[in-house]
Computed example of a mutant assay.
Amino acid sequence: MPIRALDRRRLLHALGLGGAALACGRASAAVEGAAGAPITQGYASSRVGQVYYRMIRPAPGQQGLKTPLLCLHAGPGSSRNYLDLMPRMATDRWVIAADTPGYGLSQRPATPSTIADFAQAASAVVDALGLGRIDVLGNHTSTATALELARMRPGLVRRIVLNSALMYTPQERAERKAAQIANATRDLSAAVDTIPARWRAFRQATAHQSEEQSWGRFWEVYRDPTHQDWGFVASYDYDFAATLAQTRAPVLILNPQDVLHDITARAAGKGPDVRIAELPWPGGTFDLHVDAVTQVIRAFLDT
């Protein structure tokens, strides 16, 4: 599917909006979620720069509110990936979705970050909002961030939901890191030349979404193509298995039938309270199958 002139205009418009939001330092306008729920936006300061977040906060005075949920996205990508999940989870709790530093509308650090840096940035968002206790949801690369946040601040994190688990062996982590670095594109012109092929592949993988939805999420992934591998490299440097084994908070691991299924299955019995939920679909967990996965997440968090 070629990139049409209209698509290019949308790209320029989106990049312009992103630049304006970063320049403002703090955003307060409301945008619409998948079910029409108002989503407010903001920034928090962290040691690696400004961290952007989206949030739905229940009406003041609402009774019976449950523990707030912090959602961390896969990388590359952004909090936009949770626009379908957020309003469904926010009927009885705060839901916050933050952009990892270097992705989405968060500031890109001058040098590559570690998982500890990402966890500190997530912690800064929580503190900026004055939240004393949270549940956290991680997805692929950010599953490491979720565990690290719980390790750094065990009194903050009550329960953890992970979409897949990075249960690589040390050798696998080293091999994947080397391959990621070797295949990275550092020349912007060369990276731009790959966009048509990347869009065709992305659109095929997200055929269940409207073209408009796919287009918006595609540019969240390829917003900064010469640095998009930083999150992957950080996750390969992180000893996920060792941290999981020491995590005291209850952990639910979602295991869809995707490329990480067999790796994720290794997490069975590897922590004090680790549960694995086998999911029958290969993808679309937080959009195509959002109603089903919302029920699974609620059943775990609300007990």
Score class of each variant (00 low, 15 high):
Met1Phe: 13
Asp7Ala: 12
Gly18Gln: 11
Gly25Asn: 03
Arg26Ile: 04
Ala27Met: 09
Ala30Met: 05
Glu32Arg: 08
Gly33Ala: 04
Gly33Met: 08
Ala34Pro: 00
Pro38Lys: 00
Ile39Asn: 03
Thr40Ser: 00
Gln41Val: 00
Ala44Cys: 02
Ala44Asp: 00
Arg47Pro: 07
Gly49Tyr: 01
Arg54Val: 01
Arg54Phe: 06
Met55Trp: 01
Ala59Pro: 12
Gly61Asn: 09
Gln63Cys: 12
Gly64Met: 09
Lys66Cys: 06
Pro68Gln: 01
Leu69Tyr: 01
Leu70Asn: 09
Cys71Glu: 07
Cys71His: 02
Gly75Pro: 00
Arg80Phe: 08
Leu83Arg: 10
Leu83Phe: 05
Asp84Ser: 13
Trp94Gly: 14
Val95Tyr: 07
Ala97Leu: 11
Asp99His: 12
Thr100Leu: 10
Pro101Asn: 03
Pro101Ser: 02
Gly102Met: 01
Gly104Leu: 08
Leu105Cys: 11
Thr111Ile: 02
Pro112Val: 03
Thr114Met: 00
Thr114Ser: 06
Thr114Cys: 00
Ala119Asn: 03
Ala121Trp: 01
Ala124Phe: 00
Val125Leu: 06
Val126Gln: 10
Gly132Cys: 05
Gly138Arg: 02
Thr141Val: 04
Leu147Met: 04
Leu147Asn: 08
Glu148Tyr: 01
Glu148His: 11
Leu156Pro: 09
Ile160Ala: 10
Ala165Glu: 11
Gln171Tyr: 10
Ala174Glu: 14
Ala178Phe: 05
Ala179Phe: 10
Ile181Phe: 05
Ala184Phe: 03
Ala191Lys: 12
Val192His: 08
Arg198Gly: 10
Trp199Lys: 15
Arg203Ile: 04
Gln204Phe: 08
His208Trp: 14
Glu212Asp: 12
Glu212Ser: 15
Gln213Asp: 09
Trp215Met: 09
Trp215Asp: 11
Val221Ala: 02
Thr226Asp: 04
Ala234Trp: 02
Phe240Lys: 07
Thr243Glu: 10
Ala245Asp: 07
Thr247Arg: 09
Asn255Gln: 13
Asn255Trp: 04
Asn255Glu: 06
Val259Ser: 14
Ile263Tyr: 07
Thr264Gly: 13
Thr264Lys: 10
Ala265Gln: 14
Pro280Asp: 12
Trp281Pro: 13
Gly284Arg: 08
Gly284Ile: 10
Val296Glu: 08
Thr303Gln: 14
Thr303Lys: 07
